[in-house]
C-alpha cells in the first residue's frame, strides 16, 4: 500500500474510533460519578466513621468528661459533703446543745424537784410543827389566849407578825 492508502486507512480507523468512543464516554461519567459517589460515600463513610469515631471519641471524651466530671464531682461531692458536714456539724452541735439543753432542763427541773422535794418535807415538817405548837401540848387555847382562863397572872404580848 502506498502512503496515501495508509493515511486513508488510518483516517477511517480514526473515524470509526471516534464514533465508538462517543458511546463509551457516558459510562465513563457514571464511573466517574460512581467514583465520585463512591468517593463521596467513602468520604461520608470516612466522615461518618470519623463522626462515629468522633462520636466515640466524643463518647470517650464524654466518658472522660464524665470521668473527669466524676473526678471533679467527687471532690465537689466531697466538698458538698464536707460543706454539708460543716453545716451539719453546727446543726448537730445545735441539736446537741438543744438536747443538752433539753437534758439540762429536766436536770434543772430535777434540781427544782429535788429542791422542792427538800422543801416539801421541810415545809411539811414546819406545818406539822406549827400544828403541834398550835395545840400547845394540850394547853387551853382560845383564839389569842393560852392557859388557864382563871390564872392569876396574865402575860400579854403586844406584837406584830413582821
Amino acid at each position: 500500500m502506498t502512503r496515501i492508502g495508509l493515511i486513508a486507512a488510518a483516517l477511517a480507523l480514526l473515524v470509526a474510533g471516534c464514533s465508538s468512543g462517543g458511546d463509551d464516554a457516558p459510562p465513563s461519567q457514571p464511573q466517574s460519578a460512581a467514583s465520585v459517589q463512591s468517593e463521596q460515600h467513602e468520604q461520608q463513610e470516612q466522615s461518618a466513621t470519623s463522626y462515629a469515631a468522633g462520636q466515640s471519641e466524643s463518647t470517650q471524651d464524654h466518658a472522660q468528661d464524665q470521668a473527669q466530671d466524676q473526678a471533679h464531682a467527687q471532690p465537689s461531692a466531697e466538698r458538698e459533703q464536707t460543706a454539708a458536714q460543716a453545716q451539719a456539724e453546727p446543726e448537730a452541735e445545735q441539736e446537741a446543745e438543744l438536747k443538752s439543753g433539753q437534758q439540762a432542763e429536766p436536770a434543772a427541773d430535777q434540781t427544782e424537784a429535788e429542791q422542792a422535794g427538800h422543801e416539801e418535807p421541810e415545809q411539811g415538817a414546819m406545818v406539822a410543827q406549827i400544828i403541834e405548837s398550835g395545840h400547845r401540848a394540850g394547853l387551853i387555847a382560845n383564839r389569842n389566849s393560852i392557859g388557864d382562863p382563871d390564872a392569876a397572872i396574865v402575860i400579854t404580848e403586844y406584837s406584830d407578825f413582821l
Binding site: R136, A137, S145, G147, V154, T156, E157, D160
Partner: peptide, 21 residues
C-alpha cells in the same frame, strides 16, 4: 418559856395585834 409558865397554871398568855407595818 412562856409556854412553860402557862403549863404550870400560874399564868395565862395573851397576844394582842399591833399594826405597825
Amino acid at each position: 418559856m412562856i409556854e412553860e409558865l402557862v403549863r404550870t397554871g400560874l399564868a395565862r398568855f395573851e397576844y394582842r395585834h399591833i399594826l405597825n407595818h
